[in-house]
Design a protein around this nucleic acid. Structure first.
Length: 349
DNA sequence: TGGTGCTATACAAG
DNA sequence: CTTGTATAGCACCA
């Protein structure tokens, strides 16, 4: 309830501000780090109790050279272009001059692990590292329940988006050309995410992140500027997204193993494509929630059947590989069953 | 003088 | 009502 949200967010904010202060002060490396709330909680599309938070810690850097490390267009090796003043990051460079995501994440993790001990009145622990994951996960013990906070390290660089994004973000018909142009002037974010397909697993790859743009699109999702404002017309876009998130979450609970490849990002990506396919606010009238949800769901089913869901910002990067055809078919069958039987999982608790 | 960091304030979203 | 975020004003310091 409201009380829980308040308690949880208060607790998370106290812990996170404490950690940010410590990380900034500790040594030169992370002195200009900034907080950015990301993920469902901050996008107002959280479906369950507020027990999961995503916090991006953003490091501004100047002039990076991005080299694609595979054909997805999402993963990059990073090097500093001609001497920037980023001397304080030298200790995170590999032998070949590449900025190491692993080393940087370890540096941040070490400070956080140390600092967590100094937080009074709250029991905070740093969870074991998952290989290749960009997150440092905190667990906050709040007696009846537990809150987990994913801290994601991101680099922010004010330069043009890489070529792989050229034909992505096709929002002209939905949000407009000017909005697209403005988005593309916003900085590039790179998160310390290891590419599993990388030949040598040295952990120095980075992945593009568009969390800042996604958050903006969700909070400003109307074709008409006044969409969902208090004196405007309410639409059902966010409710549709929440419903499919909830459906996937429930199905994942029932079939954890078979559905392990799927995450809410698939659902979110399909959502943005649906917003483009049905760009007008009248396509998402609040009264038509059921019909809209069904169209969105059918779109997602098509993606699964074709094993084809392009990343919204990097069109050549397919999030549903043919290699996982069996998983895609499994989820498609599960969703079809739900669709044809009045969504039984929504009623089971 | 300009950069930095804290606080107050306004306003959006639910 | 609550929380989150952007911004303006202010003191501080090199």
């Amino acid at each position: 309830g409201r009380q829980d949200v308040s308690e949880a967010s208060g607790l998370v904010n106290r812990v996170v501000t404490h950690l940010i202060q410590a990380v900034r002060g500790r040594d030169g490396s992370f002195s200009s780090i900034e907080k950015l709330g990301a993920g469902s909680y901050y996008e107002h599309v959280k479906i369950s109790e507020p027990n999961e938070f995503d916090i991006m810690l953003v490091m501004p850097v100047t002039r990076l050279q991005l080299d694609e490390c595979d054909d997805t267009g999402a993963y990059y090796y990073l090097t500093f272009k001609r001497n920037p003043k980023e001397k304080y990051l030298n200790r995170f460079l590999d032998e070949d001059g590449k900025l190491s995501a692993f080393k940087m994440l370890e540096g941040l993790r070490r400070i956080i692990k140390e600092e967590v001990k100094h937080i009074k009145d709250t029991e905070v622990t740093v969870k074991r590292k998952k290989p290749g994951s960009p997150a440092i996960t905190l667990q906050i013990n709040k007696p009846p329940a537990e809150i987990s906070v994913d801290i994601i390290l991101a680099l922010e660089v004010q330069q043009s988006w890489p070529p792989s994004t050229q034909d992505g973000l096709k929002i002209e018909c939905w949000l407009g050309r000017k909005v697209r142009r403005d988005f593309r002037y916003r900085p590039v974010y790179l998160v310390a995410k290891q590419n599993k397909k990388e030949k040598l697993l040295r952990g120095n790859t980075w992945r593009l992140s568009f969390s800042h743009i996604e958050k903006d699109m969700l909070n400003n999702h109307g074709s008409i500027k006044t969409c969902c404002e208090s004196d405007g017309v309410k639409c059902c876009r966010k409710d549709c997204l929440k419903l499919l998130k909830y459906l996937l979450e429930r199905l994942k609970m029932k079939h954890a193993k078979e559905l392990e490849k799927f995450c809410s990002y698939h659902v979110k990506t399909a959502f943005f494509h649906s917003c483009v396919a049905w760009p007008s606010d009248t396509d998402w009238k609040y009264e038509n929630l059921e019909h809209c949800f069904q169209k969105y769901l059918e779109y997602f089913l098509h993606c699964l059947q074709d094993s084809q869901l392009p990343h919204f910002f990097i069109p050549r990067y397919n999030l549903l590989s043919l290699d996982d055809k069996a998983s895609n078919d499994f989820l498609s069958r599960q969703i079809n069953y739900q669709l044809n039987n009045g969504f039984p999982v929504f009623h089971q608790v």
